[in-house]
Structures are given as C-alpha cells and as structure tokens.
Amino acid sequence: MELDPQSAYSAVQTAISQASALIVTYSFSVLGAILLLVIGFVVAGLVERWLYAGLGRVGGFDLTLRRFFSKIARYFVLGLVVVMVLGQFGIQTASVIAAIGAVGLAIGLALQGTLQNIAAGIMLLALRPLRIGEYVEVGSVSGTVEEIGLFATRLRAADGIYILAPNSTLWTLPVKNYTRNGIRRNDITMTFPNTDNIDRLQKTLVGLAEQDTRVKKEPAPAAFVAGLGDSTMSFTLRYWTSATDFAATQAEMNKNVRNILNEKA
C-alpha cells in the first residue's frame, strides 16, 4: 500500500499542532507550579516564624511546644502547596488526598519503627520528661536538649558533640533529668587516719562549704563519717547547689578539699 504524501503531511502537521498546544498548556502549568512552590516555601517559613513568635508572647508557653507547633504549621502549609501544585496539572484534589492516604498507609506499614518514633515524640511533648535547655541522661545518651522533633531529638553533649537520638529510645528508657528540680546534691568522700579529731574535721569541712556563696543554706551542708577501717575512716562532705552552679562548685570544692588533705599530709 503506497503512502499518500498528502495524508502523511497532514498527519505530521496535526501532530506538530497538538504537540505545540500541549507544550504551551503545560509550560504555563510548569511555570505556575514553580511559582506556587517558591511562594509556598516562603509562606511556610513566614507562618513558622510568626507562630513561634506569637506563642512566645503567651505567658508560660513552653519553648519545646512552641517549636513543635511552629514546625507542624510549616509542614501543613507545604502539604497544601503540594496539593495545589498537582492541581495545576489537572489532577483532582480528592484523588490526590485519597492517593496520599493510601501511600501514607503503605508507608506506615513499611516503616512501623518510624511511626513509633512519632508516637514517642508526641508522648515526650505531652508528658515532657525533658525540655529544651535541660541536661538529661537516657541510657548511653546524655546532653543538653536542643530540639524535640517528630522523629528524633537533637542534643548537645557536654563536650560539644552533636547527638540525634530516636524518640522511641528516649521514651522507652528511664530519663535522668539533671536540671528539672533546680538543685543538686554533691558528696565528696575522702580518707583520714582514725586518729584525727572527728569534731574538728566536721567543723572544718562544713565551714569550707558554708564559705561558698553557691552552696545552699537549706538543706544545710553536712560532714559525717561514711565508713571505718582498721586505721582509716571515710569522711563525706555533703552539700546542695543550684543545678546551673553544680559543675563549677564541684570543681572548686574538690580543689579546696584537696588543699586541706595536703595540709594534713
């Protein structure tokens, strides 16, 4: 069968016309989608900052919850932007939402551990065993809390190391919060000969603690015999400080006690 040149030419012309129409149509859709994405990211950032600042003006509103709600608002806006971008290409919004739901279910079944982290993050935010700025120890993880996210919590170790811990780990293990109660106790135990005068040692050590303005008056510092050996006795100096002064006071007190031991040597 011979190909009719006229028919072939007409077919090519029709194809070119249709391709041109599609290019023009989808070019505007692509440009519109890019514009929506840019505007959406800007608006999402503005909403996050406005909400964070607005909640900061609410008296007593926790810093951890401020960051959490502001992040949620950002992701919500970005989700709306994605739906709008898909709508630019003629995809029905209802279909998009249904598809997102189906994909979300499939991802949820595949990533059950991730969902556990989300659930744990919600429980951490609800019960708040740790807050931003507090120093905590959970299992082998310890540091100052910088951010509690939906999936993981960011901490800064005492030596400045960056730590990202899964929320499920922080939720399933006991939490030691060194900051929450506001005050901390320190015990310094040292060894003296049994021949030393106990009353004089108590007076000297308690006086040493009382001279430091960071040491709390209540509970009052105390010194006592912690153990007895054949020729030596263990003596403990106990005092309380604010949680923020603990490390500095401990270092200073250890030095002063060491000086007393050197004087007796």
Results as ranks from 00 to 15, higher is better:
Q116G: 14
Q211C: 03
N259F: 07
R185D: 08
L37N: 06
I39H: 07
R67G: 15
L78W: 01
Q116F: 03
Q211F: 06
N181L: 10
L78N: 03
Q202C: 05
L3K: 01
Y9E: 14
S29D: 11
F69D: 04
D196N: 07
G207N: 06
L37E: 05
L55M: 12
A223W: 03
F61I: 12
N259I: 07
L109W: 12
L125R: 11
L127T: 09
L155T: 10
L201K: 03
Q6H: 13
A209N: 07
S95D: 04
P174Q: 12
A19V: 09
S234F: 09
M233E: 01
T64P: 00
E218I: 07
K255M: 07
V58E: 12
V30S: 10
A15M: 10
T191W: 04
R258S: 15
W171A: 15
T93Y: 05
A158V: 05
N177Q: 13
A223Q: 02
A157D: 13
G108H: 04
T241H: 03
Y239G: 00
I163M: 05
G108F: 00
A106S: 10
S29C: 15
L86Y: 05
E134M: 11
V215H: 10
I148V: 15
L46I: 07
A8E: 00
E137M: 03
L208K: 00
T25N: 09
G207R: 01
T249N: 08
D245N: 14
V138I: 14
K203Q: 14
I107N: 09
D4F: 01
P5C: 07
V12F: 03
L86N: 01
V138M: 07
I16G: 03
V58G: 10
Q211K: 15
A119E: 09
G59D: 10
D159M: 02
T64R: 00
G56D: 09
D199G: 03
A33Q: 12
E146R: 00
D187W: 01
L37R: 01
A251W: 13
R238G: 07
D199E: 02
W50Q: 11
F224M: 10
I100G: 13
V77L: 02
R49M: 10
A220T: 08
G90H: 14
E263C: 03
T169V: 12
L261V: 14
Y239E: 01
R57W: 06
V206G: 00
I161Y: 05
A247S: 12
R180H: 05
R180D: 04
L164C: 06
P174Y: 04
L55E: 10
T172L: 11
T144I: 09
V103Q: 04
R74K: 09
V141K: 06
V77S: 01
R214Q: 14
P166N: 12
V138R: 10
Q211S: 11
I91T: 05
G79C: 01
A251E: 15
Q211E: 14
V141Y: 11
A11I: 02
A11P: 01
G45Q: 11
N262F: 14
N197W: 02
S95Y: 03
A126L: 15
T232D: 10
E2S: 12
K264G: 00
R66C: 08
F192G: 00
S231W: 04
L125D: 13
L3P: 00
Q116C: 02
W50E: 11
